[in-house]
Write a protein that binds this DNA or RNA. Structure first.
Lengths: 188, 188
DNA sequence: CCTACCGATCGGTAGG
DNA sequence: CCTACCGATCGGTAGG
């Protein structure tokens, strides 16, 4: 009746609403209108679902960053990174929410893999900011803090952005870009 | 042996590390070296502890905002709001973490009270940004998005700022202020 | 996909 | 502060 993908999608929705530990396998089974035991013919464990969700969100973020052409200017690359980040959050809001909120409940070895992917993602932002400072189009006292500032402003949007609201993702990205670019723009 | 405050403080630490649903009353009792049942002579329920933690964090944020003199310039008021916010996060990192992460697990009537306090807090930021735009020292396409941008950048710091790290809260506040003020500064 | 069931643990109470 | 215990529910398995 259901594929593993269906089950993981529903799990993503429930985990994002109630948290990983606040969602039971029977809660999930009820939504799918099957018995709890049936889930185990599709997935190995509850944690496997969390892993699939979190890892797929990481895939999406990294794919968006990888699509940014490296030969563009720092301003343009940052603009695309910001747009791509917000676009992933808007398209995959439940997955992104679980990614930000629940990844810590993975067992240590899986958690470590997510940390590495998250660090790799942050490096895309760090590099573009450092390149901009070097080339004189950006300024910042500390590139690390500036990177965390930008990513903080972006990450938290999963808490308040609603894809069905009156603010479109394009409008949000445009305004966020105006604010971020100004915060980093070199004087003169 | 233990006061209610002691118990709630430990609960704040555990909830911030493992989540509300990921922490059992027996986990908490073990840290305090008592039996699980003993906790109930100090607190009414697990949820009461969550409420105490979340509500106290709200107290701290609102108190910091209320301490900002209303007759200062928008730039100065925003500077103080940013500093105050980061200061609360640094001083009360476990409480702030639970506030941001676990408030949704309160029952509806308590959750509603937190929402109202959070909205009142956001209004402090919204007003100062609108005042700045009106007076011509700030610019933003949409004051609401600008407010959420600033608060997003601030809120997420609980995820990465460590009070025992090499970056002090004063350094962080100063750099955040430089970035935020530039993001809003009117041209010319 | 089901029924039936496992041991462990959950938040919480009774009674001292 | 304790022992003893409650019913409910947890993630997961056996076997079909």
């Amino acid at each position: 009746m259901y594929t593993k993908t269906d089950i993981v999608n529903i799990a993503g929705k429930l985990f994002s609403e109630r948290g990983y530990h606040g969602t039971s396998m029977r809660d999930l089974a009820k939504v799918l209108a099957v018995r709890g035991a049936t889930l185990y013919s599709h997935v190995e464990s509850k944690e496997e679902m969390l892993w699939e969700i979190v890892n797929r969100a990481a895939d999406e973020f990294l794919a968006a960053a990888a699509a940014v052409p490296q030969d563009s200017s720092p301003e343009e690359r940052l603009r695309l990174l910001v747009h791509g980040h917000l676009d992933v959050i808007a398209r995959e809001l439940p997955y992104a929410t679980v990614f930000f909120h629940e990844w810590q409940f993975l067992e240590p070895s899986l958690r470590e893999q997510i940390k590495e992917r998250r660090d790799a993602y942050e490096q895309h932002f760090r590099r573009v900011i450092e390149d901009g400072i070097e080339q004189g189009c950006f300024q910042a006292e500390d590139a690390r803090v500036a990177t965390l500032f930008v990513l903080s402003a972006l990450n938290w949007t999963y808490q308040w952005f609603r894809p069905d609201g009156s603010l479109t993702i394009e409008q949000l990205a445009e305004q966020y870009n105006a604010l971020i670019q100004r915060s980093l723009k070199a004087d003169i």
